[in-house]
Amino acid sequence: MQGRAPVFFTPQEAAFIDAATQRLIPADTLGGGANEAGITTFLDLQLAGAYGRAERWYMQGPWPSGSDQQGFQLKYTPAQIYRDAIKRVDAHCRQQHGKPFAQLDGARQDELLHALEQGKLDLGDIPAKTFFTMLWQNTQEGYLADPAYSGNRDFAGWKLIGFPGPRYNYVEDIEQFGKPYQAPFVSLVGRDPSAYLRGES
């Protein structure tokens, strides 16, 4: 995250997210990764908002745990899950390796992400898998959602896959079987969303 004070993340949390998301979606020959796409800012704004507060979720107790089929039963909002899980992962890294996650090398970071994905780290009340699934889901969202939400910078995600953005009319194009669709990438806020994003708080 560059030159912008986070709304939700502390500097340590932002460093964790910068590092973790860049391992999940690295920069490579196919284009920019999570950092280039602005995903830390995307996540910061999401967690500071209605999603972070679980505003649309039923959050009344009691809170027994249930079967996988019964779904999410934690009393924590996404914002609380990130805050608590990052703290515990960094504590684990300091204990095992003497440094927080963000300062480990890439191979070590990948190992830790795999451990989270497989539920092999103890994050207290929060199952490691739950945190990993949420982080990976939200990272993909930041990469593939409309750039109006501050991620998918320079259409990084859409360029990777060939999605041209929300367009209104394919009446003629739909029957051009087998032909690539070639038109400039477009966002809900136009062809240069960065102009809109500069004022984002």
Binding site: R56, W57, Y58, P64, G66, S67, Q70, G71, F72, Q73
Partner: peptide, 15 residues
């Protein structure tokens, strides 16, 4: 609330 069978405790569909 949801459960697969009557011998379980149904839990809220939270989202």
């Amino acid at each position: 609330t949801f459960r697969n069978s009557a011998d379980q405790t149904a839990l809220p569909m939270r989202h």
